[in-house]
Design a protein around this nucleic acid. Structure first.
Lengths: 109, 109
DNA sequence: TCCGCTTACTAAGTGAAACTGAATAACGAG
DNA sequence: CTCGTTATTCAGTTTCACTTAGTAAGCGGA
């Protein structure tokens, strides 16, 4: 459930979901998958998640913490928090516009 | 401005933006570009927009209206409205989770 | 009338990312 | 010692977003 529609867009980026997840606290990949599933309903396959982690790290929005060689935890960086806040603001604007427009008794009268 | 970050995700799907735009009323492509620019800050290039329109039409979420051979107007379908509402709900959940988590005095104490 | 601007869409080609799915492996429970 | 969960890596494919360029109708002004 909470399916990302194949063909057509995904409707929410993996990168955003990761940032939201890490905003709660440090996590390793596998826990992010579970967390993201809970708050967004999107179940990510490993390949999708780890690919996004790599790119986010290159961007400097998250950083790897000392790994215990089984789990590889990540932390969101200050730049990551900035980016997240900015994106959330944009998201809110779009969501509000959409809600306003899709609300008024569609199909009725 | 309102840049979609090249590499890394786009953070908002073109398809969603189109649905929000059409939720306000019928529009042809060029006007959607302007409308979307206004409410989301994302300026789409023609190729991006028209590609999304094609896929949305195949999906049955929008439909082409009789064209005057210069403008090609589109209308959102009932299924499109359903899909939009569902996506907005998901978006709101993500946005709320993100805002809650990114809020509490980050980096302070 | 013809020049140029805005409007409006079409089309081609590229790269990056999301997705699937399978392989690997450590660890705990029983 | 075996099975299920935890956790990550990797390979391969699809698809979308992006850029850019091209076509063309309509309109205002000189």
């Amino acid at each position: 459930m909470g399916r990302r529609t194949p063909d057509l867009g995904r409707f929410t980026d993996v990168a955003l979901l990761v940032l939201v997840s890490l905003a709660e606290g440090d996590k390793h990949g596998y826990r992010m998958i579970q967390d993201i599933e809970e708050f967004s309903g999107s179940s990510l396959e490993p390949g999708t998640l780890y690919g996004a982690l790599m790119r986010l790290e290159e961007r400097g929005w998250i950083e790897a913490l000392p790994s215990d060689e089984r789990r590889r935890p990540y932390r969101i960086t200050p730049q990551g928090v900035d980016a997240l806040r900015e994106q959330l603001a944009t998201l809110r604007r779009i969501e509000e516009t959409g809600s306003r427009r899709a609300r008024p008794s569609w199909g009725v009268a």
